[in-house]
Write a protein that binds this DNA or RNA. Structure first.
Lengths: 333, 333
DNA sequence: CTGTTAGCGCTTTCAC
DNA sequence: GTGAAAGCGCTAACAG
């Protein structure tokens, strides 16, 4: 048996099943025009299976002018559990809507955005960072219908800001404000996550203002216990002392915890700490970390709906639900 | 300005620049046939920019019969830092080879494999789990040239097993064997990660055999301190006691650490623990966790090379380097 | 260098 | 239900 190099096409199936190519197309796409006998349908399916027929996405896309791929563009920052879970939820949410969600990580040094158009024809692009104007324009003319920037930081090139990331910071602050007069904020030392960090900090700020508390004392630290320890000393030496700490995420919160241990201090007795994400490590920290957790499935549904609305027009489901935020209260705060 | 709905095609560019379509194609693809004046080249590029031309990947793929997309198929298990980093390294490694790496998470309930062919025409698929025979056959006939199963667990449908995952377990065991006579293994309670867990455990087993130590005492536990505590009690009550623990990854190692704290015990005094992955939390654990770290960039290079070899034939670079494994020794072991 | 032409595989008319 | 034919946008091959 010499290997057959040619692709199995829908015409082959039609020939084998003894039907027209149109019929094959109808069967394979479950066209509403249900004028097809069950017998022919079976014949077509059998032929397709026998020949090992697989449709050509490229041809399909070329014909339709649009694929059913949604491209998620991941920024350059480290991918932890939070993004991982979000990706899975987005995959699920888009699958429900008959869209295939794939992710590309825009690592520095990797292909530029424009190179990606050469490879993929997504129906929509879902990005975690705003695009530059020229990128956005390029996508538009590439026939990509929607561009959704999840976390609008500056309005720059962003189509829609559909997350209230500052609700996270607000939840942290509100919880701490019950027993602490002066709050501190651990800001990440990685500028790449500023799209997340800034709104979270803003949330803390506005709650402080609302409750008549002084401005939060913001410190940028790396993920090292030593750096945390020296910041903790500064905080506790202030007057009044800073004793309620909101961290950008669980990792930075755990850094503070490690800093406290280093100084022989203890949470929440000497200082209360609260993280974000409820990563697996949070429950195992010492002491177990109180943390803010987003309703990722709901967030994913919201994003998917936004994309659908952009693709199909406003007739898509309204789903105006604001994803809820929950506090997982453990021992650290 | 009425919005122009039609796509800008290469023919438009040719018309605007006053050149033939072939010339446009040559310019845009930097064809080796360098018979093109710099003047015409500039004219073409200017026209393309002016019109906002973007090539159609679908048409390109249809023409060539193959795209330059490599699809990474992520299994269903939780995505942590380890996978996240690997994805980024793979993106980089494939980009260097002019391939676009995208990832699809095969969440349960999401689209089936066969649905993905409807959306994407990858040149290659890189999976973390073996395919079923029928899936593999389907991919072949869909024109996808390579199917690489990273972690071959059963030989089922796997083309190549290019990782020595058991080297990880071996490194753990060797380190502990220096000061512990009896080793234990924390096996994950999630069967989905068995592709990783089994070879790691095998590595521990073979080192024990090699050094004349008794078989490791394997326990499957969930990620809760209580479960860890009761297992720890059993281990310490054994005769001889089990005092050197290899964990499947950092999270399970941290669970053991939490269990020890719960019992008022301490690592490494009462029991030594060693993890895998060097996740950010490992350095912040209490005590800081000793862990095994893989050389992810090298692993990614290896995978990318494997794919290239499958795509281009054996003329691709040999790169027989086995990625090195390193021990990050902290305090827990 | 230019112009033309064919064809990748699919869907969708438009007759029959 | 069938068959033929057009066209999505791109590339490559061929005569000029």
């Amino acid at each position: 048996m010499a290997p057959r190099s040619r692709r199995v096409t829908s015409a082959d199936v039609a020939r084998d099943a003894g039907v027209s190519r149109a019929t094959v197309s109808f069967v394979l796409n479950n066209t509403a025009h249900q004028k097809i006998t069950d017998a022919t349908r079976q014949r077509v399916l059998a032929a397709a299976a026998k020949l090992g027929y697989a449709p050509s996405p490229a041809a399909r896309t070329l014909r339709y002018g649009r694929s059913d791929v949604v491209l998620g563009l991941l920024p350059d920052w480290p991918l932890g559990h939070a993004v991982g879970n979000l990706i899975q939820e987005l995959t699920l949410a888009f699958a429900k809507r008959n869209l295939t969600f794939v992710v590309h990580s825009s690592v520095r040094g990797a292909r530029s955005l424009s190179d990606i158009w050469k490879a993929l024809t997504p129906a929509a692009v879902l990005a975690f960072e705003p695009f530059t104007d020229s990128d956005a324009a390029a996508m538009r003319s590439a026939g990509i219908e929607v561009i959704v920037a999840l976390y609008d930081s500056s309005g720059l090139g962003a189509e829609a800001s559909i997350t209230s990331a500052n609700a996270i910071g607000a939840a942290q602050a509100r919880h701490l404000a019950a027993s602490h007069r002066r709050l501190g904020y651990v800001y990440p030392d990685d500028e790449r996550v500023a799209v997340f960090a800034r709104p979270r900090l803003d949330g803390v700020r506005s709650v402080c203002a609302e409750l008549g508390l002084p401005e939060p004392d913001v410190r940028t630290i790396p993920l090292t216990p030593d750096a945390a320890a020296s910041t903790i000393r500064t905080w506790l030496a202030a007057d009044p002392p800073v004793t309620g700490i909101c961290a950008f995420n669980d990792e930075f919160a755990m850094t503070v915890l490690a800093g406290l241990r280093k100084l022989g201090l203890e949470a929440p007795r000497d200082m209360a700490v609260i993280g974000v994400d409820d990563s697996p490590a949070a429950a195992l920290a010492c002491p177990p970390l109180t943390t803010v957790v987003e309703d990722l499935p709901a967030v994913a549904e919201l994003y998917a709906d936004t994309v659908m609305r952009a693709l199909d027009g406003p007739e898509a489901s309204a789903s105006p639900v604001e994803p809820r935020i929950r506090l997982e209260v453990r021992e650290s705060a």
